[in-house]
């Protein structure tokens, strides 16, 4: 699914985001990327979303070389990915339904198909009864679940999450992680960047540990 081969990212100001990182993620795998602030977690996610390009090395996602991908191809690459942000990035002037429907509208699906899939996604995150509300009417945890529904509604092959539980209390964080596990059980690869080691340790999935842009650990969490 994902292949990092000696991937490095250096910024024009001299800062090195990643040092020749190499690892693989199999299809359907659940993976945490952890490390302190500045370790390179966000850089790694930005590379996977083609928001940035590697300075050197080879980064393959579903067979596509993200170092060589053209700007015109990037939107189509991103349609294979679902992304969940720490701050949800919801549109507050749209209803929950319309927030979740956005990726499907971009795909140009029919209204009937959009409604069917949005209902299904909202059901999966237990928000079926909130479809007509606006994000401002929801709690932080519910907003995050709307973000997750939007990320999975187009049935992506890969789900990326950047500190998805950063603003949540432990109970809500565990609940959100449960949602990610449910999604993963349906076959979607899940990659979560998080520094919540306590939570990660409880879940017993593969964990990559970054430190100052270098991979210093690759194994099951809690071991």
């Amino acid at each position: 699914m994902i292949r990092f081969e000696q991937v490095a990212k250096r910024y024009p100001n001299g800062h090195v985001g990643l040092h020749e990182l190499s690892f693989r993620v199999r299809r359907g795998e659940f993976l945490f990327v952890t490390g302190h602030s500045g370790a390179g977690k966000s850089t790694l996610l930005r590379l996977l979303l083609a928001m940035e390009r590697p300075t050197s090395g080879k980064l393959l996602l579903a067979g596509q070389d993200l170092g060589q991908i053209s700007n015109a191809q990037i939107p189509f690459l991103r349609r294979q990915i679902g992304v969940v942000f720490q701050n949800h990035q919801l549109l507050f002037d749209r209803t929950v339904f319309n927030n979740v429907a956005l990726p499907l509208q971009i795909l140009g699906l029919s209204k009937v198909e959009v409604a069917k899939r949005v209902d299904s996604a909202l059901e999966r995150v237990a928000l079926s009864d909130k479809a007509e509300l606006y994000p401002g009417d929801l709690s932080t945890g519910q907003q995050q679940r709307v973000g997750i529904a939007r990320a999975i509604v187009h049935r992506p092959a890969l789900l990326l999450a950047d500190e998805p539980t950063g603003n949540l209390d432990p109970r809500l964080a565990a609940e959100i992680m449960g949602v990610f596990e449910d999604i993963n059980r349906l076959g979607t690869s899940v990659l979560i960047a998080s520094h919540d080691l306590t939570l990660i340790a409880r879940m017993r999935h593969r964990m990559l540990t970054l430190q100052r842009g270098r991979l210093i650990g690759d194994g099951e969490a809690g071991q």
Binding site: R27, G28, Q73, R79, Q80, G108, E113, A157, E181, L186
Partner: peptide
């Protein structure tokens, strides 16, 4: 790895070289 099914990328997503790219 906890996946019970590993469908192909193309089974679930419809990336197309044109915009918009409706569901297959």
């Amino acid at each position: 790895m906890s996946a019970t099914r590993s469908p192909k990328v193309s089974e679930r997503v419809a990336p197309k070289p044109a915009d918009p790219a409706p569901e297959k």
